[in-house]
Design a protein around this nucleic acid. Structure first.
Lengths: 217, 217, 217, 217
DNA sequence: GATGAATGAGTTTTCATTCAT
DNA sequence: TATGAATGAAAACTCATTCAT
């Protein structure tokens, strides 16, 4: 039942994004901006319609319900959030990553840039994640399955090489994600541009912290 | 001006909690539970009233506005969130903490227990923090002022002793808080009781991660 | 039925004013001030209670209903609005009034001063008169009965003397009242103190206007 | 600032009346009738909706707020209350008015008929004028500007001709308006149809009263 | 006599959604 | 396909009034 539910939503959403006419894109962009700014609950479809310069009905014809519109905003981003582990990308990674440190650095910078260029959607996701636990709890494993597999393999490799300490992979991954998401949230949702900081050095500290926290000595 | 604003709210809230009749406590408890479950925006005062077994008007007589009710839920918790650094407590800390590790362990267990016994309010705070950035941005420094001072002093001590690495205190504190809040959020907001895990060992990993991340070698 | 209704109200009100304790007077004063300022409908009993420094219940014990409070404000004033035609006053009038002009001048100055020292209640009455037409339609004849009688007699006297023109007494009285009430309303309800004008000369113009309008030539 | 405020309201109102669909007209008519009967404060939008046979939301879609609805009722009437002094009308006046008496008679009959065919709105205006002093204080001068100019010119002409007495124009106009409004109010707001009287002769008395009050002898 | 606590019925206003064109 | 018009349900909040103490 819950699976069906979610799959329905994905289906509806995919159908919607398939075409992506000019008006649809305008609606989507406006929705993203407003959800990010005021939150989903506090943004009315009337406001979105007005800002997007379309009639309210147009939204509903394209997205059926307001929640569906939210899904159409969130899902593509969440799907892309775990790095696309194409053969190509993995190859690149393997070539580039001679050490655990390089691996971490590459991943973090990669995701940092991805989120940076999708600030608004990231805000929406963070703000809504807590209200759609069920969705995310079911969605994430599915989405991250191959990513997880890859992570596990990689961690095991570095463990075998004796580079990193021996705590359960799940715990380790959760710690890292906590730290990274926590940093991104502070940076893009809480502080936003109100306190411009020296990006690079902050990220380097973050990387250093993780590396040291996991490095075997 | 903003200071006044917040102080007014605190005042209003304190005045409200001063008496705390039976019905008021019932309202507060119900509000906490429902805000935690469905979020502030998605919980109507009518629902709270019904669940609490009082009339809706009683809520408004005691808390004036719905937002004020939220504040009455949030503020006492936030105020208590930074540990009360009484002479006594600091003395105890100093006596107990011969190493940075002991210091971190003590702090984390202390806050873990505090949050564990206030799970619901913690959920509310986490869920609402993103919609009240301004409030928290102004409130937190004020509240954490003396805590920050104490942290800085302590960190400096351990830095001087050569126990921990030399990155800016602010960055270090933010990292630690990210990690700890991230862990608590995963534990109490996302997973809740759905995946009972071995608490102690998870916390120990967390502590280990922090210690290793900051320890000088 | 309507008679009973009104008499009940008067009775209730008289019972209330009989004692007129300190608190009651405070309530009455506050009600007058606030009804005058914001109107009956827009003033809540809660506000009155707060401003008067009593509990809301005290108002209701003393005045039974909010409308009754209004009546307790309005009725004594309305009763006194038509000049108290005591033997004494009439004697004084007769002695003083050798001409129609003197009669009109005396009456207008007399009522002007009465209303001036009851500005607020006058405002309340003017503002509420239109919402309680039934009350006033029934009340006024009763109240003005003896005044009317006196007016008629006086007008007839001056008509007989050939001082004033011969239009129906009722019409004449209504015209004069229109003009005078219109002036008082402009002066005390619309302009209030916003445009301080030369009182005496304005009143003299008013008197002149009436005199000329009615004088035979 | 206040000017803008009022102009905004007028703009909003004009925009609303521009289209005037069937339902909108129904809402307006019902509002006029009910405001006239029970007053603005004592009429709820729910009642209006029910009586007008539309849903409450439709009212708010068209008029935004309840106060705006009131403005949409009041403003067009107030704007039309001062006679439209077109070239044509003034020419007609000049041709017809050989004496001050004829001038007054024409004006009064003209406005009497206008108000008679807008009884209900007139009632609303009279009932609300006291609660919106600021609005009217600002609005009336603006609206009556050209009318005032014309009145002044006319009065000066008749003064020059020696037909009327020499009291300040402002005072004279205010007196006349007091008398006329007072009469109309008594006729249409207080008595309504409860006491049908001989219209024409009453108006003739009114005219006579004014003429005599101002005529030089 | 005085009041703090409580409320049912109502207020204006907003919302996501549907329908006729 | 697009939209102006319409709405039932619900939102936060206010009111005059009552009751137990």
């Amino acid at each position: 039942m819950p699976d069906e539910y979610i799959l329905n939503k994905i289906a509806a959403q995919l159908k919607a994004t398939d075409k992506a006419t000019v008006k649809q894109q305008k609606i989507l962009d406006t929705a993203i901006r407003m959800f990010a700014e005021k939150g989903y609950s506090n943004t009315s479809t009337a406001e979105i319609a007005k800002e997007a310069g379309v009639s309210e009905v147009t939204i509903f014809r394209n997205y059926k319900t307001k929640e569906n519109l939210l899904m159409s905003v969130i899902l593509p981003f969440v799907t892309d959030l775990t790095p696309v582990l194409t053969e190509e990308f993995i190859g690149e990674l393997k070539k580039a990553c001679n050490s655990f440190e390089e691996f971490i650095r590459m991943m973090i910078y990669n995701r940092y840039n991805f989120i940076k260029s999708n600030k608004d959607i990231f805000q929406v996701v963070i703000k809504e994640i807590v209200y759609h636990e069920d969705l995310f709890k079911e969605l994430l494993p599915e989405i991250s399955r191959n990513a997880l597999e890859f992570f596990n393999k990689t961690i095991n490799t570095f463990k075998a090489r004796g580079e990193i300490i021996d705590i359960p992979n799940g715990t380790m991954i959760r710690m890292m994600i906590s730290l990274v998401i926590g940093y991104f949230t502070t940076r893009f949702v809480i502080l936003k541009d109100s306190q411009l900081i020296d990006e690079t050095s902050e990220i380097e500290y973050l990387i250093g912290f993780i590396i040291n926290g996991l490095k075997k000595r």
